[in-house]
Design a protein around this nucleic acid. Structure first.
Lengths: 236, 236
DNA sequence: TCCAACCCTTAACATGCCATTAACAGACAA
DNA sequence: TTGTCTGTTAATGGCATGTTAAGGGTTGGA
């Protein structure tokens, strides 16, 4: 069974070049162009290696790496455009396994890819080969609240909650940043996208709706609390 | 090495049509017109698949199948003219791997032939592996819905549903990912292929057709549910 | 080689849901 | 109190999905 590599790169020509060359080496390759798709495909594909560009629409590579690191053991090879990003890449913030600074040659990339996969293979064998057959259901659980990533569904006391698309995305984002104060602007940028033009009060309305659905008493919220003058914070 | 197929059919025009089409697909093909020759050729050729008509001079298809079954592991695809023969064909008396009822289209035949050969290939590879790594699922069943992988056929309440190739592939993919939300993009990549250039709404149309065929009430689907803002989810 | 049948894709229209905004109310800090 | 921030609600325009049919390509059959 060929090893699977997920390419996350928004620049199409580079994406295609990478895919072409990696396929030629016999790997199973998938490629996506933005952070959101990266999460979706990674969760389902369970790739052995993720080639991850930092500059991405919707959600940057740091964010993607940070989230996926918690969820899976795939090796992460980051592509950086500027030298000053390297510290963050290899540092504790992300903890990528390796990185390449643009521009790089295919030869370099291949060497790094092979090196990472070899290392991953060794690691796997050491760990007694606990290889999952079926895709495990990814879930985030907070007491009686469950976010089922695989089904894209929210459960309260194990009962499905009817939830609208934006509400789901917002809740997921909040949950992924538990206990962190998130400003409306930050939320807008990450959930709505950097190109969103509009009123930050939009967030308030969605929070209101979420509270009605997941709070025991939506007038006295304990899960999504307001940080006056700051934004919102998800407690769990 | 091309796979070998033996055609046993006394009606010359059909024999020639079959041979012509199978050869065009790249198989090595031999054709005979009676039961006695069938035995002789089968023993010498050791074909991977035998397409066997029931109505034959000298010795009928049942007899041929019964004898050859003991001698070799070739897949047997029987051609029946009447519905009332089906029971004997698929029953214990003969135990054909698959059957087709006349009249049938070349398209159908090709699908069955490919399916059988693929299955035979898999079986061959499985030899020598652990026994509990059972035969790759021949059927997927969800209540009154059955997807028969071997026959490449969908049954609703044990009755065959006429289903188009893309519909079948889509349904199979959904079924293999039961309870998972699948985005249109993901579906396109996996079912249509990574190089598909086109509108993701294409998925919607195929879903619509599937719903008409497998949902009790296609206006209120319970099997293939839509996840607004996400994609679709097959519930079973 | 040509015809007929079949199927995929897309475009176009229909429809129902949802995001956004505005407006007002209430809460909090100065 | 007063101004600012947040809560809350409802209307509306837009968007995602449902649905249908036609065009065009492909395949089988003669």
């Amino acid at each position: 069974m060929a090893e699977t590599i997920l390419i996350v790169e928004d620049e199409i020509s580079l994406q295609e070049t990478l895919a072409y060359n990696l396929k030629k080496e016999g790997y199973t390759v998938e490629a996506v162009g933005d952070g959101r798709s990266a999460l979706e495909f990674a969760r389902r594909l369970r790739p052995d290696l993720i080639v991850l560009d930092i500059m991405l629409p919707e959600m940057d590579g740091f964010e993607v790496a940070r989230i996926l690191r918690k969820e899976m053991s795939a090796a992460i090879l980051m592509l950086t455009a500027r030298d000053d990003e390297i510290d963050r890449v290899v540092g504790l913030e992300v903890g990528a396994d390796d990185y390449l600074t643009k521009p790089f040659s295919m030869r370099e990339l291949m060497a790094r890819v092979k090196s990472q996969l070899r290392r991953a293979r060794l690691l796997r064998e050491e760990m007694g080969k606990s290889k999952d057959a079926a895709t495990p259901h990814e879930k985030l659980t907070f007491e009686n609240l469950t976010i089922d990533l695989t089904r894209r569904e929210v459960l309260l006391n194990d009962k499905p909650v009817q939830i609208k698309p934006k509400e789901y995305e917002l809740l997921l984002f909040l949950a992924e940043h538990r206990r962190q104060m998130l400003s409306r602007e930050f939320i807008l940028e990450r959930v709505w996208g950097w190109d969103f033009i509009g009123d930050s009060r939009t967030v308030d309305v969605h929070v209101r709706w979420l509270r009605q659905k997941i709070e025991a008493d939506s007038s006295n919220p304990t899960r999504i609390v307001t940080v006056r003058g700051g934004g919102y914070r998800f407690e769990g």
